[in-house]
């Protein structure tokens, strides 16, 4: 019983401490969120969102298919190509070099996007 109380108290204390960190460093928490989110391209309604994504070198970009039909992510110059991505499937590619990488959906070629690596 006593041990359980101690445990509960510890959890409460830890939670408070964590909350304090978040409250005291709101900008840091926010910028980390943005960084994570910005590495993702949503494939939705036959478009890439965002259609142009700028990332630092050595970033891994993940495409996630939110459509009811499959899509295939393929770079225009043949550098990378995913398998067919069904609904909610993901594909990641790590960009090691700076440059602009144009890509499209190889089965719906009207869908085009760009990754700008700085």
């Amino acid at each position: 019983m006593r041990r359980k109380l101690f445990f509960t108290a510890s959890v409460v204390a830890l939670s408070l401490a964590l909350a304090a960190v978040v409250i005291l460093h709101p900008t840091r928490a926010k910028s980390e969120d943005t960084k994570t989110a910005s590495m993702e391209v949503r494939v939705d309604n036959f478009t890439f969102g965002p259609d142009t994504l700028t990332v630092p070198a050595n970033s891994t970009v993940t495409w996630v298919n939110k459509d009811d039909v499959p899509h295939v992510i393929a770079s225009n110059d043949g550098l990378f190509k995913s398998k067919a991505l069904d609904t909610d499937d993901k594909y990641s590619y790590t960009f090691t070099k700076a440059g602009t990488f144009a890509y499209y959906c190889s089965i719906h070629p009207k869908m085009v996007g760009k990754i700008v690596v700085q």
Binding site: N76, A102, Y103, Y104, S106, I107, P109, K110, V112
Partner: peptide, 10 residues
């Protein structure tokens, strides 16, 4: 007409 499709094309 569904293969070797080019970016931006039909």
């Amino acid at each position: 007409n569904v293969m070797n499709l080019k970016a931006g094309g039909l």
